[in-house]
Simulated assay, not measured.
Amino acid sequence: MTAILLNSGRRVDPFNLDAEFLSIAELMKPLPKLCRYSGQPDCHYSVAEHTVHLINVVPAGLKRAVALHDMNEGLTNDLPHPFKAALPDFVEFEQMVQRQIFAWYGEPWENMALINDYDRRICADEMAQIFTPPHIIQGMQPLGVKVEGWEWREAEQKLSNALKFVGLL
């Protein structure tokens, strides 16, 4: 069996998630420590902080979808876009994991498409604030999010609070 060892001590086969159920606590655990943009920013900017900022700006009906949208990265990690373009099998696997997580938590998969614009637009905020020199994405309207570069323990607490707020914890 191929397996990923989780912080909870469980071993999970990522290729057979139909037979598994992962708790939100298991899924969220790595996110405060996973840095966005392949760790290239000037500060530690975690997937958890990114998620909390998105939860705070999307409409109420999309908050759960946003809370779940990057949970797969605790299992699959993330790859920069050029790699994803070259590795369609990875993208397909990543989407399969995301779909399973949405199904476990009763979130309609269609909501993933509805949050894409927000997920792209926050990149305009992030890249302008966490890189030196700032990277400005021409033609993209930022969301107005202020990146703070939370230390992982702070990011873990804030993500936990946000997940409680949306009813996932």
Rank of each mutant, 00 (worst) to 15 (best):
3 A>K: 14
3 A>I: 01
4 I>G: 04
4 I>V: 15
5 L>R: 13
5 L>Q: 09
5 L>I: 07
6 L>V: 09
6 L>I: 11
7 N>Y: 06
7 N>T: 12
7 N>L: 06
8 S>G: 06
8 S>T: 10
9 G>T: 07
10 R>H: 10
12 V>E: 02
13 D>H: 09
14 P>D: 02
15 F>R: 08
15 F>T: 08
16 N>T: 01
16 N>D: 13
17 L>P: 02
19 A>K: 12
21 F>A: 10
24 I>V: 15
24 I>Q: 07
24 I>N: 05
26 E>F: 04
27 L>S: 03
28 M>Q: 13
28 M>P: 01
29 K>I: 00
31 L>Y: 08
32 P>T: 12
33 K>G: 13
33 K>M: 09
34 L>E: 12
34 L>W: 05
36 R>T: 03
37 Y>M: 11
40 Q>E: 14
40 Q>P: 00
40 Q>A: 15
43 C>A: 09
43 C>M: 14
46 S>K: 07
48 A>P: 09
49 E>K: 03
50 H>C: 04
51 T>Q: 03
53 H>A: 12
53 H>G: 02
54 L>W: 06
56 N>Q: 13
56 N>A: 10
57 V>S: 06
59 P>F: 04
62 L>K: 08
64 R>D: 00
65 A>E: 04
67 A>K: 08
68 L>T: 11
69 H>V: 05
69 H>G: 01
70 D>F: 06
75 L>K: 12
78 D>N: 15
78 D>Y: 14
79 L>G: 00
81 H>Q: 12
82 P>D: 07
83 F>I: 10
83 F>Y: 11
86 A>Y: 02
86 A>R: 14
87 L>F: 15
88 P>D: 09
89 D>M: 12
90 F>C: 01
93 F>A: 00
93 F>N: 00
99 R>L: 04
100 Q>L: 01
100 Q>T: 11
101 I>F: 02
101 I>V: 13
101 I>S: 04
108 P>V: 01
109 W>I: 11
110 E>V: 11
110 E>G: 04
111 N>C: 08
112 M>P: 00
113 A>I: 08
114 L>D: 11
115 I>E: 04
116 N>T: 11
118 Y>D: 02
118 Y>N: 04
119 D>T: 13
119 D>E: 07
123 C>E: 13
123 C>A: 14
125 D>E: 05
128 A>E: 12
128 A>R: 15
130 I>D: 01
131 F>K: 06
131 F>S: 03
132 T>P: 02
135 H>D: 00
138 Q>L: 10
140 M>G: 00
144 G>F: 13
145 V>T: 10
146 K>N: 15
147 V>I: 15
147 V>L: 04
148 E>P: 02
149 G>R: 05
150 W>C: 05
150 W>M: 13
150 W>F: 10
151 E>N: 05
152 W>D: 09
154 E>I: 10
154 E>Y: 03
155 A>T: 11
155 A>V: 03
157 Q>D: 10
157 Q>A: 15
159 L>F: 03
160 S>H: 14
163 L>R: 04
163 L>Q: 02
165 F>R: 07
165 F>I: 00
165 F>M: 03
165 F>V: 00
168 L>Y: 07
